Amino acid sequence: MLIFYLNRQLDHDLVEEVTEVKEYSTGGKFYSPHEFEDLIVEYHPIKATRSYAVYGDTLFYNPVKHHRENARFLRTEMNLNSKAYQILVIASKMEKQEQIKNICLIILLPVCLLLLVVLLVNRLLLRKIWNPFSQLLQNITDFNINQEKPYQPVEMPVAEFRQLNQVLVDLSGKIKSDYEEIKLFTENASHEMMTPLAIINSRLDNMLQSNNLDTREGEMLAELYRATSKLTRLNQSLLLLVKIDHNLLQDQHQIDLEALVKEKVLYFQELMQERNITIQTALSPVVIHANRQLIEILINNLFSNVIRHNYENGRIEIDLDAQQIIFRNTGHNPALDPGRIFDRFYKDSTSEGTGLGLAILKQICIRQHYALSYAYLKGLHTFTITFKP
């Protein structure tokens, strides 16, 4: 656009120069521009004139500045002093181009400065607006339903953000209140169930030791005793799952896993000897940082699982190194479903367990960020826990 404007201006000046050539070329003399005007007028005699005017761009040698420059020319024909001439007028573009550059600088510099100021103000305003929103997101991330610290509200400069903040405050309060009620109900219900179950077990135990029972009554009491014992274990397992799910066991300690496994081998030795189950161990010194209660439950459940689901004269293999611990056991059942084995209440039809042992294993591994897997390899049920998955 500016180049078009420059060319129009130069073409207008060239027309004026041609007019001056016509007016001032008289008496055998030709018009000659001043040497400082950056103009060149050339006269070329011709036989006859035609009516035309040609404009264009060219390069010419400026004799004043002694270098070549961009220029604009006008070629036309006219009669001067009763003779026909072709007139070529060349005007330098340098001065006009410099003027356009100066105009552009005068326009662009304030525009760039204004744009910079607008960007700076916009950044400050956005920071003022969005910093509280970022703090709001951080508070949502830091909010923990298990902690006594309530959700922290944030002062928001925007009405919609203030409304969002108030909704989050109300919602977090309701969630925390509902959670506390459920937690209290679970603990109270578990406690209240344990008391009558303990009484029933105690009475059934006393009755089973009585000498006045016939065979049928003894069998019925033994069946009731097993049912109440199973109900007690189920109640304890569900309560433990609730604690694990809600991350209530958070204390971390350094645990000598090799010593813990050896301790559990001695603890379960009598059960294995009763069924003539052999055990082979390959243990390396391993120390992990975890919750001790959860790790003890983990090892206890693994031992209980490989013993309960084993057969007479079976075997158990335990491998431990810095990366993982592996429990293998023989068993009556073929390979189990790896996709369902860790689901709650999933168990074999012949099992007398609660169906929560492996589910508890899974939840503990999730809380401790371990990887738990099952496979049936070479006739052995294999449970692998990887400490650094």
Rank of each mutant, 00 (worst) to 15 (best):
L136D: 03
L113Q: 14
N188G: 09
T141H: 15
A290R: 02
H191V: 08
S177F: 08
S134Y: 13
S373D: 04
K149A: 13
L80P: 05
L266T: 10
K101F: 11
T232F: 13
Y267D: 10
F143P: 01
V41N: 10
T228R: 06
V261G: 01
L377G: 04
E17W: 08
F60Y: 13
G218K: 14
Y311A: 15
P150D: 03
P285M: 03
F133N: 14
Q269K: 14
D348Q: 08
R328K: 04
L208K: 02
N139Q: 05
L80R: 04
R203V: 14
N301Q: 05
V287L: 05
L10P: 03
F30G: 02
N81G: 08
R75K: 09
T278P: 11
Q86D: 07
H332F: 14
S172H: 09
L171M: 13
H369T: 12
L105K: 03
V306M: 03
H12G: 14
Q324T: 01
E95L: 11
L124M: 12
N291G: 00
S92R: 04
F345L: 15
E148L: 09
K96S: 10
V111K: 05
V111L: 08
L136V: 03
C365L: 05
G339P: 00
E180K: 15
V18L: 06
S32W: 15
D11Q: 11
F143K: 03
N201P: 08
N81Y: 05
F345D: 12
I366W: 15
H246V: 00
K101H: 15
L113A: 13
Q138V: 08
G353Y: 01
Y31A: 07
I366G: 09
H381A: 01
L294F: 02
R50A: 15
L113S: 14
E16N: 13
L184S: 15
R68C: 12
L115E: 08
K362M: 04
G379C: 07
V121P: 01
C104R: 10
N62Y: 08
M78Y: 06
T58W: 01
L213P: 02
L260K: 07
V117L: 14
K22G: 07
L114G: 15
R308Y: 12
H66F: 13
E148I: 07
G28F: 02
D319S: 06
L283R: 00
S349C: 11
L260H: 04
A48C: 09
